Measured scan of single mutants.
Amino acid sequence: GAPPLPPYSAGGREVTMKKGDILTLLNSTNKDWWKVEVNDRQGFVPAAYVKKLDSGTGKELVLALYDYQEK
């Protein structure tokens, strides 16, 4: 199953993602919540729920390892 959710501390809205989604990583300075862009929406997802990909394009991409439903 998915890892436990860290307390929400990102101070911005969250976004929903599905397992297998490829998201653009915008900011990973917060260790628990990373800012991503998905379907032209920006928001935060739990860092433990995604994995960085080596895209080779200069853009940082992450793979959704679990479904996440915004609150």
Rank of each mutant, 00 (worst) to 15 (best):
L63K: 07
T16E: 08
L61W: 09
I22F: 05
Y8W: 09
Y49D: 01
A48H: 08
V50Y: 00
N39M: 14
K59M: 13
K18N: 08
V45S: 00
N30L: 07
L5W: 06
E70F: 06
E37N: 06
K35N: 06
V36I: 08
V38F: 15
V50Q: 00
W34I: 05
E14S: 14
A47D: 01
E70D: 10
R13V: 15
W34E: 00
T29G: 09
K19G: 04
T24V: 12
L65K: 04
D21V: 04
S9Q: 12
A48L: 10
Q42A: 12
D67N: 07
T57G: 15
P46R: 01
V45H: 01
V62Y: 08
L5V: 10
L26H: 05
V45I: 10
G1A: 14
W33K: 01
N30D: 13
T57V: 14
I22M: 06
E37R: 09
D54L: 14
D32P: 01
S55P: 10
L26M: 07
K18M: 11
L65P: 00
G20V: 00
V36E: 01
D40S: 12
R41G: 10
M17K: 00
E37A: 11
E70T: 15
I22E: 03
E14N: 14
G12D: 07
A47S: 14
G20T: 02
K31Y: 09
Q69D: 12
V36S: 00
A64E: 00
Y8P: 06
W33Q: 01
S28C: 08
Q42Y: 09
S28G: 11
P4Q: 12
Y66H: 07
L5Y: 07
E60Q: 14
K19L: 04
K31T: 10
A64M: 03
T24C: 06
L61T: 10
G11K: 04
P3L: 06
T24E: 10
A2V: 13
L53P: 01
A2F: 09
E37P: 00
P6V: 03
V45R: 00
V36T: 01
Y8M: 14
P4W: 07
E70N: 12
G11R: 04
S55L: 10
G1Y: 10
P3N: 05
V50H: 00
E14Q: 11
M17A: 04
G12A: 06
G20Q: 03
G12S: 07
W33P: 00
Q42C: 07
P3G: 06
K31F: 08
V45D: 01
L53Y: 14
T57S: 14
P4R: 05
Y68K: 03
S9H: 12
L26N: 03
T16Q: 08
K59E: 12
K59Q: 12
A47H: 02
E37K: 11
K59T: 13
P7V: 08
N39L: 10
R41Y: 13
T57R: 03
M17D: 00
G56A: 15
Q69F: 14
N30A: 06
A47P: 02
S9F: 12
L53G: 02
N39D: 15
D40R: 10
T29V: 09
Q69H: 09
Y8E: 10
A47T: 04
P3Q: 04
F44T: 02
K18L: 09
R41A: 10
D21Q: 13
V45T: 02
G58W: 08
W33H: 01
S55T: 14
E60K: 10
P7D: 14
K71P: 12
T24P: 10
K52Q: 08
K19Y: 05
G58A: 10
A10F: 08
E60F: 11
L5C: 06
A47Q: 04
Y66N: 04
D54Y: 15
W34R: 00
S28K: 10
W34L: 04
G43Y: 09
K18C: 07
